[in-house]
Amino acid sequence: MSAKILIVDDAAFMRMMIKDILSKNGFDVVGEAANGEEAVEKYKELSPDLVTMDITMPEKDGIAALKDIKKINPAAKVIMCSAMGQQAMVIDAIQAGAKDFIVKPFQADRVLEAINKALG
């Protein structure tokens, strides 16, 4: 059975891009969220196998959403996907339990590699 993925990004275009990459490679995109608040709601509702999470978003940012999701399910698999690739941000995310950190702009291969590794 193909893995269920939740895509979180405030830009509809970026969600479309990631969804396109994942759908073409056999993943099942079960939901999308446009901010951290929505991400936590959708996580509860859909219980995805993996979440791709933007960081800079309105309402609640991706790091805060990651922490909330980890409270709901400590085994949750979340991959951060942000243009803010600075070390402090990466360390923050990894310490909060993120599986990987993809810096935008990204190549499709990098996204697939991170997801396959996290699910593996």
Binding site: D10, S82, A83, G85, A88, V103, K104, P105
Partner: peptide, 22 residues
Amino acid sequence: FQLDVLREISNIGAGNAATALS
């Protein structure tokens, strides 16, 4: 939708610039 694309372009550009500055 296109305005949203422009916003994401800016987030990506400035995010990378912020990383360089940091």
